[in-house]
């Protein structure tokens, strides 16, 4: 007997990019980035407990260009994951499932996280006397 010609499910790349799926994958990516950041938070706490030398080493990392890029990535990730997490919690209690609402809250999360990141860096650089 010849095998039945079953339709194959389309591969992921065939789908058109949509805000909903992009935001969903971004939630995961930012979650993974924040997991990585947590390791650095624990390093910071351990360094503060350990010695002046260990603390200076951690501080040296934050003020390096690599450290600043990481801080920028973690701040945008934190604001995004926080806002989109609230969006997910609303869905969990059955709110905001209208397609129009899904898109509206989606864009609100994108714009909100970018504005919060911008505000945080303006305040941060100002407090450090660089702005």
């Amino acid at each position: 007997m010849t095998p039945v010609e079953r339709p194959l499910s389309p591969h992921l790349q065939i789908y058109k990019w949509q805000l909903t799926s992009v935001l969903s994958i971004t939630h995961r990516v930012t979650g993974l980035a924040l997991s990585f950041g947590t390791v650095f938070l624990v390093w910071f706490l351990a360094a503060a407990a350990w010695s002046d030398g260990a603390f200076a080493l951690a501080q040296g990392f934050w003020s390096s260009w690599l450290g600043e890029i990481c801080l920028l990535g973690w701040s945008v990730s934190l604001f995004y994951h926080l806002l989109n997490g609230i969006r997910h919690l609303a869905w969990d209690i059955g709110l905001g499932f209208e397609l129009k609402t899904v898109y509206r809250t989606g864009w609100a999360v994108v714009i909100g996280s970018l504005l919060l990141t911008l505000a945080a860096w303006i305040v941060g650089l100002h407090l450090r006397g660089q702005l």
């Binding site: 503060a48 934190l78 407090l127």
Partner: peptide, 28 residues
């Protein structure tokens, strides 16, 4: 844990501003 983390994350962000550039003694 997500719900508990909402206020804790806000506290953390504000704390980072307050303690920006602190010495080890100040953090301790």
């Amino acid at each position: 844990s997500a719900v508990v983390l909402i206020p804790l994350a806000l506290w953390f962000v504000i704390s980072m501003f307050v303690h920006l550039g602190d010495s080890r003694a100040q953090i301790a």
